[in-house]
Design a protein around this nucleic acid. Structure first.
Length: 568
RNA sequence: GCCCUUGUAGUUCAAUGGAUAGAACUGCGGACUUCUAAGCCGUCAAUGUUGGUUCGAUUCCAACCGGGGGCACCA
């Protein structure tokens, strides 16, 4: 990639001047008159060299021009001492050719070639609603997984599900209680959500119920009660099947195992491993008030957490230790990424700290990626009170809006439905992925979802527009060199690989969304101000731009997990 | 109380310590009866407060003010 080349070029030049520079910073100037790339090394080095930045820059530029510098047309010094690089036309033609030649591979790199990467995300708990929080985790995790694939890594997707624990016991209690009332319904996800809410509320408000739920919890772990086993097994299966349907709806691809994730891990499997790890390490985990805890180092801002409760049941903490072990045995990864909402951030720091003592090699490979939460204007959602927006309801409502936007009567109702589904997913996923991680999204249905401007549908529309144009031009010649001058759109297209690279290194999807929206704007501006099919000499060049734009938009949208309709 | 996180136009978001803080929505104003108007062009409008570090701070540090999250047997 050109950045690496430039970096070495500068590093070598500095070396000749007797300077070892650890970091060469290159940036894309916003203003085109500042070149295609700029560096501030002159400003950074000037002080230690005790020389004015501009003078230093002049010396450096002379040195740079001495070395072979293919692809660079000119180098300028500007402002307080920036060095601006301008690429030559040959470079741009070549890059555009690369884009067209690479097709679906356009934008990829080899930074993690053949490395094994595991990404865990979504993590819904059985017997509870699949709400917009899970949708957020799924959207972000899926995008990170796709982005990691561009690095050449072998990526596997994992979903970790809480199929034992107090929440499950609450739901089972709720089912039994609803049956007593005579208000039992067929076992489906909606009924299970209701049952959970019933049990969770009872455990908070009613001491007796709480005791019963604790008993049920134990019985689930030990599988000692036939009646409860039956309810549990049925509920669990209904829940899991229901989730699988949701993943499909969210646009996840089918993996080799015929499902949406490569691996499914369950708390009912991790707890034994976790418990063993804790009990085997009495020096790390200590007894306190009948429970076994891990004392976090307060000077590092860590707090103390219970790993095995006084009933002898491992908590989520211990299970997570067990999970890391099972994961590694299943798939010996170089990098393990866990995606959760940031309410688990502090929790994870403690678990990772404990893991660093138990199995340091795994802790080193584990990254916790925490994202903000999807919040309602009214505040936090609660499945206990039933104050949740399910992913399904949201998708349905947004799809309804999207259908209303389709004007073209050329589409059959089947096509309309398909387009609306894709646009709805585009709108929702984009609104989640457009911002840098960590911040909450206040989810106001009216305001958060846009079909115009800075939105997913804008990207999809731009793509469909480009495709339509290419269809009209089918059979016509495409040529990357026959231009009057290099267009800004051209310069923008060829940046794609470095954006993908950065997104991969930082595991941040929003670099992709930001880039794509700028690209689409550049394209629409071009489209609005230029007639492409005009029979002029540079028509072939303009078509090359349209084709490269459509390829870039497509590849980019796929990294976001956003469907790419051919027409809309 | 302690820890983490966050504060940018009226609103929702950008900005690897750099050059004139960039978009979208909203408002206001345009063009086009030519390849998809979910589009294009123009315009109004912002870095919570006070200090510090730096040639240069939205970005780093400190304090304060406001939002969110976490802090022992939930996940």
């Amino acid at each position: 990639m050109i950045t690496k080349k430039l970096e070495t070029l500068i590093r070598e030049a500095l070396k000749k001047m007797g300077i070892e520079s650890s970091e060469i910073k290159l940036e894309r100037p916003e203003d085109a008159s500042h070149g295609d790339y700029a560096t501030n090394v002159a400003l950074a080095c000037a002080k230690t060299q005790k020389i004015a930045p501009k003078q230093f820059a002049e010396k450096l530029v002379a040195e740079l021009l001495n070395a072979p510098h293919e692809g660079i047309e000119k180098i300028e010094i500007a402002g307080p001492g920036f060095i601006n690089f301008f690429f030559d036309d040959a470079y741009f033609s070549k890059s555009l050719e690369d884009a067209l030649g690479a097709g679906d591979k356009w934008g990829t790199n080899a930074t993690l070639k053949n490395k094994k990467v595991l990404v865990e995300y979504t993590d819904p708990n059985i017997l509870k609603e699949f709400h917009i929080g899970h949708l957020m985790s799924n959207t972000i995790g899926e995008s990170i997984a796709c982005i990691m694939e561009t690095t050449g890594a072998e990526v596997k997707r994992a979903c970790y599900q809480g199929d034992v624990g107090m929440h499950v016991a609450c739901a089972i209690w709720g089912i039994i209680d609803l049956k007593k009332d005579g208000s039992a319904e067929p076992m489906n996800s909606k009924f299970l959500g209701k049952a959970y809410a019933r049990g969770a509320t009872a455990s908070k408000e009613n001491e007796n119920a709480k005791k019963e739920i604790i008993e049920i919890n134990k019985k689930i772990y030990t599988r000692s009660d036939e009646k409860i086993n039956k309810l549990y097994d049925l509920g669990r299966q209904v829940s899991l099947d229901d989730f699988e349907g949701k993943y499909k709806k969210l646009g996840m691809k089918t993996r080799l195992n015929g499902k949406s994730f490569d691996f499914y891990f369950f708390e009912s499997k991790t707890w034994e491993f976790g418990k063993k790890i804790v009990l085997d390490n009495p020096k790390i985990f200590e007894k306190s008030d009948g429970a076994i805890i891990y004392k976090g180092d307060e000077s590092k801002g860590l707090h103390t957490r219970v790993f095995i409760n006084s009933e002898g049941i491992p908590t989520y903490e211990a299970k997570d230790l067990g999970l890391s072990k099972i994961k590694y045995e299943t798939y010996p990864y170089e990098i393990s990424i866990v995606v959760t909402a940031n309410e688990q951030k502090e929790y994870f720091r403690v678990v990772l700290d404990a893991m660093a003592k138990v199995s340091p090699e795994l802790a080193k490979k584990t990254e916790h990626y925490s994202h903000g939460m999807l919040r309602l204007p009214t505040g936090k959602m609660s499945s206990r009170t039933g104050d949740v927006v399910t992913a399904e309801a949201l998708l349905r409502d947004v799809k309804g809006l999207a259908i209303g936007k389709i004007k073209d009567s050329n589409f059959s109702s089947e096509e309309k439905n398909d387009i609306a589904e894709k646009v709805a997913l585009g709108a929702i996923k984009y609104s989640i992925l457009r911002q840098s991680s960590g911040k909450d999204i206040i989810f106001d249905f009216e305001k958060s979802l846009s079909f115009e401007g800075d939105s997913g549908p804008y990207l999809q529309y731009s793509y469909a527009r480009a495709r339509s144009l290419l269809e009209k031009a089918s059979g016509k010649k495409i040529d990357v060199t026959n231009y009057k001058e290099i267009s800004p759109l051209h310069k923008y297209i060829v940046r794609f690989p470095e954006v993908v690279l950065r997104a991969g290194e930082t595991r941040q999807s929003h670099y992709i969304t930001t880039y794509l929206i700028d690209l689409a704007r550049e394209f629409n501006s071009f489209y609005g101000n230029t007639l492409v099919l005009d029979g002029s000499p540079d028509e072939a060049y303009k078509l090359a731009l349209v084709k490269a734009t459509s390829q870039t938009l497509k590849n980019g949208l796929e990294l976001l997990g956003i469907p790419v309709p051919e027409r809309m």
